[in-house]
C-alpha cells in the first residue's frame, strides 16, 4: 500500500506558495514524512533536513546531497508570502512573535525568522527584511510519554525537568505528558495548567487536542506571569511549561513549588555538564526544585530518555562532577548507574 503524506507535513506544505508546494508534493511520501526541518533562504537553495541526512532539491524535483547550479531556489517574494500566510494575514496579532524571532503555526510547528532586527531604545521590537526561514515540523512521536511516565509518575506526581538539545522532542514529550496526566494516568483526576507561551503545545485553533475537563491552557502568557496567575487563580496540581531559561521563569517555578504545586518543564542543554553551567538555571539545582532530570536524545533517539538524574543522588551543585555519581544512564530498557 502506498504511504500517505503525514498530516503534520501537509500542514506545512499548505503554508507554502504554489511553486514550492507542487515541487514538494511530487516527492515520494516516505521521504517527505521523514522531514524535520525545511530551511528556506531568499535567493538560495531549499535545504531539507531529516534526522539522518540533509539534502537539496533540484529544479527537476530530485533530491541531491551536492550543491549545484540546478538546485531549486527560493525568491524573496516567496519568503514574504510564507510569513504573511503563516501569521494568517494578521501581522498585527504576531508582534510579540516577530520580536522573539519565530512564528508558531497550526499544528504547533515553529517558523524561525532570520532578518534584520528593528530596535528601539536598545531593545529588539521587531524584525524586517526577512531573508531566511527555518520551518521546524512538530512530529507526533507515538507513545512519546510512555517511557517518562513509567520512570517518573508510577507513584504519583513529582517535579520533572526534561532536558535536551534542539530537536530532541522535548516539546512533544511534554505535550504527551500533559495529555496523559490530565487524562488520569496516576489514577485520580489531576488539575493541570499548561503555560503555552508560544501557542506550540496546545494551539488555540484546536489543531492539537487537549483534555478540556482537567486542563487549563494559558496561551500567550510569559511563563513567569502564567505560572503566577495559575498558582493564584487556577489551583493546579501540576503545571507544564516549555523551555525555561530566564531568571523570572526560575523564580516563578521555585515559588510555585513552595506553594505545593508540581512542575514539568523543559530546558535546552545537550549534557548534564552543559545544563549545570547555565547560570540562570543554577538556583533550581541548588534548591533541589526538580526531583528528576531526564535527558532526551536526538536523531535516531529523538524523544527517548538517554540519562536520568534524581535529586539528591548527585553532587554537581556542590562542585562534584555529575557524571561520576548518582546518574543513571539508559542502556536499552535497563537503568545502569554510572560507574557501577
Amino acid at each position: 500500500m502506498d504511504e500517505q503524506i503525514k498530516k503534520e507535513v501537509l500542514q506545512i506544505v499548505a503554508l507554502l506558495p504554489k511553486r514550492i508546494r507542487e515541487l514538494l508534493l511530487n516527492l515520494p511520501p516516505n521521504l517527505l514524512n521523514t522531514l524535520t526541518e525545511l530551511r528556506l533562504r531568499a535567493n538560495g537553495p531549499m535545504l531539507m533536513v531529516s534526522p539522518t541526512r540533509s539534502f537539496y532539491i533540484t529544479v527537476g524535483g530530485k533530491p541531491t546531497y551536492m550543491p549545484s547550479e540546478h538546485l531549486f531556489y527560493i525568491t524573496q517574494h516567496e519568503i514574504q508570502d510564507i510569513v504573511t500566510h503563516a501569521c494568517g494575514y494578521s501581522v498585527h496579532s504576531h508582534q510579540e512573535d516577530f520580536k522573539n524571532g519565530y512564528l508558531t503555526v497550526t499544528g504547533g510547528h515553529r517558523i524561525g525568522l532570520c532578518g534584520t532586527a528593528v530596535t528601539e531604545n536598545g531593545q529588539t521590537v521587531g524584525i524586517r527584511e526577512i531573508s531566511a526561514l527555518n520551518i521546524r515540523i512538530a512530529k507526533e512521536i507515538p507513545h512519546a510519554a510512555e517511557e517518562t511516565l513509567r520512570i517518573c509518575f508510577q507513584s504519583g506526581l513529582q517535579n520533572l525537568l526534561l532536558v535536551g538539545a534542539p530537536m530532541s522532542g522535548k516539546t512533544t514529550v511534554l505535550r504527551a505528558l500533559a495529555k496523559e496526566i490530565s487524562s488520569g494516568y496516576i489514577g485520580t483526576p489531576v488539575k493541570c495548567a499548561v503555560i503555552d507561551e508560544r501557542g506550540e503545545l496546545f494551539p488555540s485553533d484546536g489543531s492539537v487536542q487537549n483534555n478540556q475537563c482537567t486542563m487549563d491552557v494559558l496561551s500567550g502568557y510569559s511563563k513567569s506571569d502564567g505560572i503566577s496567575l495559575a498558582v493564584r487563580a487556577l489551583s493546579p496540581d501540576i503545571i507544564f511549561c516549555d523551555e525555561i531559561g530566564s531568571r523570572e521563569d526560575v523564580n516563578a517555578i521555585t515559588e510555585g513549588v513552595r506553594c505545593g504545586v508540581h512542575f514539568v518543564a523543559t530546558a535546552h542543554a545537550n549534557t548534564s555538564q552543559a545544563l549545570y553551567q547555565r547560570q540562570k538555571l543554577k538556583p533550581l539545582f541548588a534548591d533541589r526544585v526538580f526531583d528528576t532530570l531526564l535527558f532526551l536524545g536526538t536523531k535516531e533517539r529523538v524523544g527517548k530518555v538517554t540519562e536520568i538524574i534524581k535529586a539528591g543522588e548527585d553532587d554537581a551543585e556542590n562542585g562534584g562532577n555529575p557524571a561520576d555519581s548518582g546518574i543513571l544512564h539508559m542502556d536499552g530498557n535497563l537503568f545502569v548507574r554510572a560507574g557501577a
Binding site: T84, G88, Y89, V91, Q95, G126
Partner: peptide
C-alpha cells in the same frame, strides 16, 4: 496593507 503591518500601521 490590511493584515500586513503592526498595530500602528493597521
Amino acid at each position: 496593507a490590511f493584515g500586513s503591518t503592526d498595530k500602528n500601521g493597521q
